[in-house]
């Protein structure tokens, strides 16, 4: 089985079967990262351009590692280093990159829909590494991978996602994915940070932390950006933390074996108590580890058609 599109622009357009395929494939790649020689020749001779128009450390390094472990040649463009600061448009930048015939463009952009725009003009496979407040598909995939690793299933789980839902691309991708795989999702946060009509995506919304966490199998906390403070979204970090901060006491409202997730970077004492972030049920660092395997799986599956990528030989761990 293959993915239907040569791009990964979002979770919304994937079928449940495609999502499971990516997760299953990632499982077989996970083993590579535990080897002494953490490299396979799967994407040898392929070129990946990491086009990051917005600062990112976690996602960019995770993609870079995934590319290197698959033996792809990768190069990094970032907004500050590129001609974008000289006034070049995105489309001209993309055409210039295309002229060098890369196989993949991994793009992070601060504006929603930018990878979709790029995909209309490019022959390369576009992988969305986060666009504005829209989607962050590989984050949702690595979150799902981590949930499945810890809980052995996704169907029927109760997942609470709490924080700045309005501005979060992580939420949208997670909601699409978790709903497609049968989880119940409750979104928590103040009404000022809740986008309109999000219930139509099949989720419930709660403005009370206690209610949001009640009986949760998975708690996913979102980063609160300090600049939202005092801008009408919430009056102060202190009040936000009092209302929605994840404390040890509140964790007890969830199921006894609930896991705690965060896409990072975390703000200790803003959305999450240090003891919780570092606690026994925190899987925050597993998420980071799993990100590499998931991104390897995405690159591998999108490369699908390649003559030198025979799954039976190249697929590791079999």
């Amino acid at each position: 089985m293959r993915l239907k599109s040569r791009h990964l622009l979002g979770i919304e357009s994937l079928t449940p079967e495609e999502i499971v395929l990516i997760l299953d494939t990632a499982e077989s790649f996970e083993e590579i990262s535990r080897r002494e020689i953490k490299k396979v020749p799967t994407l040898r001779g392929r070129t990946v351009v990491n086009l990051f128009m917005e600062p990112s450390t976690r996602t960019r390094t995770s993609f870079e590692l995934a590319e290197k472990r698959l033996s792809a040649d990768s190069l990094n463009f970032s907004a500050s280093a590129s001609s974008l600061v000289k006034g070049e448009t995105l489309i001209d930048t993309a055409r210039n990159i295309e002229a060098m015939a890369p196989d993949f463009i991994v793009m992070r952009h601060q504006m929603s829909g930018a990878p979709h725009f790029l995909a209309r003009y490019c022959r390369s496979s576009i992988i969305n590494a986060g666009d504005g407040s829209h989607e962050h598909p590989t984050q949702a995939l690595l979150d799902a991978y981590t949930i499945r690793q810890k809980k052995k299933r996704i169907d029927g789980l109760r997942v609470a996602i709490v924080g700045d839902i309005l501005h979060s691309r992580v939420v949208r991708s997670n909601v699409f994915l978790l709903r497609k795989l049968g989880a119940d999702v409750v979104l928590g946060g103040p009404p000022t940070l809740m986008p309109l009509e999000i219930e139509r995506l099949g989720v419930t919304v709660s403005h009370r932390m206690e209610e949001a966490l009640d009986g949760a199998d998975v708690i996913m906390m979102l980063r609160i950006q300090m600049e939202r403070q005092g801008a009408g979204y919430f009056p102060s970090v202190r009040e936000y933390y009092n209302l929605f901060g994840l404390t040890e006491e509140r964790v007890r409202l969830a199921k006894d074996d609930a896991i705690i997730m965060h896409p990072g970077p975390i703000n200790r004492g803003v959305e999450i108590e240090s003891k919780v972030a570092d606690g026994a049920y925190s899987v925050i660092l597993d998420q980071v580890t799993n990100g590499v395997a998931v991104r390897m799986a995405v690159l591998y599956l999108l490369a699908g058609e390649a003559e030198d990528a025979d799954p039976s030989e190249e697929r590791p761990g079999r």
Partner: peptide
């Protein structure tokens, strides 16, 4: 327009 579609597309409403 702010509503379901701005939520879906992640565009500012």
């Amino acid at each position: 327009n702010e509503g379901y579609f701005s939520t879906l597309l992640g565009l500012k409403g």
